[in-house]
Design a protein around this nucleic acid. Structure first.
Length: 769
DNA sequence: ATAGGGTTAG
């Protein structure tokens, strides 16, 4: 094809048909062949295609740099390109602007809105510049500045700019409404909507999105239905409202309506629909969509392909996800990489996730958040915190946002690391990160896990709006500390404030009752649950079991309408251990050995039941069974947070600098414990057991090492925090009570799912025997 | 104005 003979508009329509990057490269090569690439008009055409196709920055930059005398349009398209990439490219935007100033071009005011938008959150820095140039009254520039404040806050500044306007365009009103929704101010958004002189699709769509974010789907739908002239975006907004709030069926129903309307789906629609399929678990439906698209030869954009990747990842087909990722090749963008990283973290493949993370050149906040939360959700809280430290020390990398903080604060909570948690909170303040409900929820979690219930309560009270998670988290805190009455009070409080309890609420309430021995209240709550599931049964078995009503518990299991799961038998086994019911313990354990043969905890519990009855032959038998099945008790580690550092202990590992002192104190405590009657010298009975195992069976656990360390370093402190990665087992539990009694101090210990506060030989967890 | 990342229990 001879490019020289084609007219501008012909070439323009040719360019629009380019559907992937290799086609773009071919097109580019042909321009070079025809020596057309020096012309600004071609450069700006190419760069706008780069924006559309998400070409990588080096390639786009190459086009720009090989244009000898770029005109204003080239600059504009380059700025728009960066604007599309997000705020991570602020430095390039600044360089571009400086170059533009040197080029002796006539800069029209229309450059500034693009400039401001392309700078993302840092566009604020242009605000002063624009004021200095005396351009602040330009309606387009004002609109851009207001949009900036609406998006990145403070929303009050947006309001001020809006208030100063003499004439307001429809776009100004829309921007302001978006701003109010963005900062959770529903009342103001509605007020503006009602008083504005005219409205368009954008206005209505902003209302739909706003309500959808507040999870108020009824109002979202009401506004959607009222839209006089819908377009693709408004359909997409409503579709995404359903999809994001876990109503995928509704989304698909609406999608049918859309297919029957005059608006046809675009790339974003496909992305939303595919992700709706994946969240309702109907992957075959998604497959049929993909098939239909292939038949119709509709090329999925990188945008929809990312959704497809995500769908495969959620379905657990990691290979399929990876295939999409590899197919995308150069048109992968940060979003694609991020989706692949979270695909790996979702299945717990942290190494592969980290490999991608390290390979990435342009990481945005989401990249960091995906990796940090990946660690946090896979029980690697310490690694999550380490990575967060890397994030804030790395110069070029993005600033943490609220999502980062939620993950990190929660990780601190899981570790019981209050000092580090407080340091994280100081970063929240320093960076002026506004906490939403989730942010406050993570604070409640942190304080509860660290034993600061007063701070947890205070945080809860400071919140203006609370969701069901806020209540659940605080109730869980009360449950862990044995404050049953406060938990039950919160249940009625939330009902009074029209927050609907969910299944987790009932789990934590029942746990609270059971830890506090509140049989009657707990039973009443259980009976009020409309459709109790197996988890709720597990809790109620625990409740009955702990107060000794084991036969009643067994009867409930027999009469369960649903199939009992391992948790139900686990509760029974634990109760049998507490009340030394060998018969029921054996029954529960034998079922559990079938249900989850590789869970070492069940074997240990049964072995402990036998040990407490002095049936040492049976103890040895269980140990042999474990060996036969090939189950090993996982090596546990415990840590203490001291002066902002985590001190980690593993049995047999003496790498800690105070190890000698720790072991000396441990031996001394062991002597005292033996003298006071604990550990009636089981060692001599267990002749056939190997030395290492023997030690473990009589309770040399990592948490004891950690407690000894804490006793050494914190002489006057009343509270010692020890955290452990495993369930605290029977021997250790008793030992902790002894230590707290001997030392006359309160010891707080966390295992991976419970909180133990030992004081005067009593533990708050409900094991009162 | 519409895609990707976050909080709670056992």
């Amino acid at each position: 094809m001879n490019f020289g003979r084609l007219s501008m508009s012909q070439l323009d329509s040719l360019a629009c048909k380019i559907s992937n990057l290799s086609q773009l490269r071919q097109f580019h090569a042909q321009l070079i062949q025809n020596s057309l690439h020096h012309h600004s008009q071609w450069a700006s055409l190419l760069i706008s295609q780069c924006t559309r196709l998400r070409a990588p920055p080096p390639y786009t930059r190459l086009i720009f740099d090989s244009t000898p005398r770029p005109d204003i349009h080239v600059f504009i398209s380059m700025l728009k390109y960066y604007s599309n990439l997000g705020s991570a490219h602020f430095n390039q935007v600044v360089t571009l602007y400086q170059k533009l100033q040197c080029c002796d071009l006539r800069i029209g005011t229309f450059v500034y809105p693009v400039l401001i938008k392309s700078a993302g959150s840092k566009g604020i820095e242009f605000h002063a510049h624009v004021l200095k140039l005396g351009l602040a009254s330009d309606p387009y520039i004002r609109n851009a500045i207001m949009g900036l404040y609406a998006k990145y806050g403070p929303v009050e500044n947006a309001r001020d700019v809006f208030a100063e306007m003499h004439e307001r365009t429809l776009a100004d009103w829309n921007n302001m409404i978006f701003g109010y929704w963005n900062w959770g101010n529903k009342a103001e958004a509605c007020r503006l909507f009602d008083m504005m002189p005219e409205r368009n699709v954008v206005t209505w769509t902003a209302m739909v999105t706003g309500y959808a974010r507040m999870k108020d789907l009824e109002n979202a739908r009401r506004y959607f239905d009222e839209i006089p002239e819908k377009n693709v975006v408004s359909w997409n907004a409503m579709l995404s409202a359903y999809a994001q709030n876990r109503f995928p069926e509704e989304a698909l129903k609406l999608f049918d309506d859309m297919m029957n309307s005059r608006d046809q789906p675009n790339e974003t629609t496909w992305a939303i629909v595919i992700s709706a399929c994946s969240s309702c678990g109907d992957c075959s439906l998604a497959d049929s969509f993909v098939q239909k698209l292939n038949q119709k030869r509709i090329h999925l954009s990188y945008f929809a392909k990312t959704a497809l990747l995500d769908m495969y990842a959620k379905r657990g087909s990691l290979q399929a996800a990876r295939q999409v990722f590899d197919e995308l090749g150069v048109s992968r963008n940060t979003v694609t990489w991020n989706a692949m990283i979270s695909a790996y973290t979702r299945v717990g493949d942290l190494a592969s996730a980290r490999e991608l993370f390290d390979k990435m050149l342009e990481r945005d906040v989401v990249t960091w958040n995906s990796m940090i939360s990946g660690y946090a959700q896979n029980g690697q809280s310490a690694l999550a915190i380490d990575l967060f430290k890397d994030m804030i020390t790395a110069a070029d990398d993005p600033k943490p946002d609220e999502v980062t903080m939620v993950s990190v604060i929660s990780a601190c909570g899981h570790l019981g690391a209050l000092d580090i948690g407080n340091w994280v909170i100081s970063i929240v303040r320093k960076n002026h990160i506004k906490l939403s409900i989730s942010g406050y929820n993570s604070l409640i979690f942190l304080y509860s896990k660290c034993g600061s219930m007063d701070d947890a309560k205070r945080t809860f009270q400071e919140m203006t709006t609370r969701d069901v998670v806020s209540y659940n988290t605080l109730i869980a805190g009360f449950a862990a500390h044995g404050h049953g009455m406060e938990a039950v009070k919160l249940l009625s409080k939330m009902k009074g404030e029209f927050v609907e309890p969910d299944r987790v609420t009932y789990i934590v309430i029942l746990t609270a009752c059971s830890h506090a021995g509140m049989l009657e209240e707990g039973w009443k709550v259980f009976e009020s649950i409309k459709a109790p599931d197996a988890d709720h049964y597990a809790c109620v078995i625990d409740l009955l079991g702990r107060v000794g009503k084991l036969d009643e518990a067994k009867k409930i299991i027999d009469d369960m309408p649903k199939e009992p799961h391992a948790g139900v038998y686990g509760s029974l086994l634990n109760a049998s251990r507490i009340h030394k019911r060998i018969d029921l313990g054996e029954f529960a354990a034998s079922t559990l050995f079938e249900l989850e043969p590789h869970n070492s905890g069940n074997y240990i519990l049964l072995s402990n039941i036998y040990a407490s009855a002095g049936r040492w032959d049976d103890v040895v038998r269980v140990r042999e069974l474990m060996r036969k099945v090939g189950v090993k008790k996982a090596t546990g580690w415990s840590w203490v947070e001291y002066k902002g550092k985590l001190h980690k202990f593993i049995v047999g590992d003496r790498s800690h600098e105070r190890s000698d002192d720790v072991y000396r104190l441990l031996a001394e405590l062991g002597r005292k414990m033996r003298n006071s009657g604990y550990m009636a010298d089981k060692t001599c009975v267990l002749r056939d057991v190997e030395e290492e195992e023997k030690e473990e069976m009589v309770g040399t656990h990592s948490e004891k090492l950690a407690v000894c360390f804490a006793l050494l370093v914190t002489d006057a402190e009343a509270v010692i925090r020890v955290v452990k990665n495993l369930r605290v087992c029977w021997d250790c539990h008793t030992a902790m009570k002894m230590i707290s009694n001997l030392e006359g101090r309160k010891i707080i210990l966390r295992d991976n799912n419970r909180f133990h506060c030992f004081s005067d030989g009593i533990c708050s967890c409900g094991d009162y025997w």
